[in-house]
Design a protein around this nucleic acid. Structure first.
Lengths: 214, 214, 214, 214
DNA sequence: TATGAATGAGAGTTCATTCAT
DNA sequence: TATGAATGAACTCTCATTCAT
């Protein structure tokens, strides 16, 4: 009982209007943001304003929707986000700052993308497409490794382990993002974002002051 | 023949054998560890070795089981964990260290308790009992506030915001715990724990060196 | 996505009341008598007087119901029908006569069993459990071979091929049975059966007169 | 813009190219060869190389396709097959022989026509257009009556009932045809046909020897 | 207390049919 | 004519919940 539709969801990609595609993607991300099982295909079609049949015409199965979303967001993060960072400042704190600015653009287009991706990583046992989710996680780890390799660790204080320090910074920033995110009921917007950036700058300053030389 | 949903699960608490109670609790935590919707009552009764009818005799509804578990673990954390910390060192880094030692004891008795609690916090929208989950979160926030109030912030460097520094430390430690947890397939055991404690000590040392005076 | 319930439908066989089991079996045979796809599980539960859930509790899937029915009827035919013929007269015409009497008993208990089995053989492309249907067909062929081996072909006229003659008789009898069956709207009953037997006797007489010596 | 269900499928008959009409007819017969419910309109359009919309433009509904096919094949059988027999030998065995030769020509043009017609007769309860299926059956019965009326029963042995003998022969021949048909996986071809005719001749010989005078 | 067969609303999925192009 | 994306009613199947025993 394999999925009949190709995992590339050809029919969906052939939709000419980008707005319609994004409406469906956003509806799906919103619904899958709390895991696979909880998500209702009824809710997706209601939110996307399409019929039940059409959703399955595009993606074949509920799992097909999920797998497509996983691949789509993974690729999006890689192309629109991580790859933009290749040129990043070797100062990791500046790197994180740049990342946060890029996040804003993605969140405007896909307001639930971070909830969705986090759910895919955290709720891993609830996900049917284990290897895809695994891949997502390993890509994310690979990006972290790349970031670490690219960053100039000579900026750190010499008396502390640089890998561990890098981890501490990443975890703190990530948790801060999650903390803000959990306080936002529905979606990111301009106002949310300004608050986030302002506070983030303060946290980065503390890090600079404490973890960097001088 | 009282009201169906007794959030206190009186009948359950009247079970004389603690071993039987714990077997049911562990089966339920294990099953709810990936969220509410995903959990199957069939799996719980299979794991707990009791009948379907008996489970519902004790807790009334699936939601009843979940709510009870949420209250039970919250209270347990408060009594066996946070309250032990009230007497804790005012040095917050030592406080986190003590917390980690206490965790071990709880994990031995309820190996899935952290998975369960984390799921309850992270997957909050998947929880039917919104107010309880909210309560859990606010209790956790309250504990953090208490911790902050209790800790001696004069140990911190004077040139950084102490609340934010506290947050940074907490987030980093918490993310480190989650990172370790995600690498463990099934349960915590002795070996896992030793590795965790050793690395934790190293991270705490970095924090001390960077965030504390001198 | 294998069938979860064992193909032996253990739960169903554990029903203590034979009447209830037969009611379900008859409802299922009636519904599957025109092929697999056409059959509606709704119609089965309506006819059997049980709930939707219970049917799937017993058999797991629609295919599970069908496979069980195929096995059940195959075994029934073998034990209650073909095996009774092992002692049969070596005169094949008397053998067919005995078979027809035995059919009566089975048809009383399971009025749609012949429609069901014929459908399983004829509509073979509509059946999901190909190997079981194939097995049914090969069992039926095996029984025909046994019948042929057991019958005293020296009773036939010496100037005709005995295997082909056997086939001619079998086909004619079988088509006659089908012809009668198609004229009966709903079920076999006493009256139908008497008419059938009377006419069958006449056809067998013609065969005896024409195909046998003398 | 006339009534949706035109049982005459006027639009279809107006297609100028016979090849295109036959391609659609063959695709439909192939798909309906295992009954009405099982048939997929998607498979028909795929096989016929036309669009979904066009198929429904021609026939209105799935039932419309089926009814047209039923009428079309019935008329075809009557004009190209049974009517050719009106002039047939009064020797019924020769008549059946001639019939078999005519079948070949029809099967070449419409390889699935026998499967389709047999399905229509056997699966009669699966057919939505009851009256048409009934009509098909009664037409077939009428033809059989005509055949019987036309045949010279004085060729039969005087000590057997001539109607019943006629039936026996017809049933046997028909079952033999079905037996061969079931052994053919896909379509009739030259080779199949030669084997069929050779064996048929042998069966007809046995009938002649046994049922005819002398 | 304890059981597990029985229920039925709701979920994911299919497919004949329509209609804007 | 011809297309195929779009629809929604109907289907199979699930599972929290009940209740006779």
């Amino acid at each position: 009982m394999q999925s009949k539709e190709s995992p590339t969801a050809l029919k969906f990609l052939q939709i000419p209007e980008e707005a319609k595609r994004d409406k469906i993607l956003n509806a799906a991300m919103k619904e899958f943001r709390y895991g696979y099982k909880k998500a209702s295909t009824d809710a997706i079609v209601r939110d996307a304003g399409i019929s039940k049949g059409l959703l399955f015409f595009y993606f074949g199965t509920k799992q097909g929707i999920y797998e497509f979303l996983l691949n789509y967001t993974t690729n999006l993060m890689r192309s629109d986000y991580f790859e933009m960072l290749n040129l990043a400042h070797r100062d990791i704190l500046e790197g994180f700052w740049q990342m946060s600015l890029l996040k804003r653009d993605i969140c405007y287009r896909y307001p639930y993308i971070y909830d969705f991706i986090n759910a895919a990583i955290i709720y891993k046992a609830d996900i049917p497409a284990t290897e895809i989710a695994q891949n997502l996680l390993s890509q994310q780890n690979a990006v972290l490794s790349e970031l670490y390799a690219a960053c100039d660790t000579s900026l750190f204080r010499p008396d502390i382990d640089s890998q561990k320090t890098f981890n501490l910074i990443y975890w703190a920033i990530d948790a801060f993002f999650g903390d803000i995110d959990s306080k936002i009921d529905d979606k990111w917007n301009d106002e949310n974002y300004e608050i986030f950036l302002k506070e983030l700058r303060e946290y980065l300053d503390i890090c600079k002051r404490c973890f960097y030389k001088n």
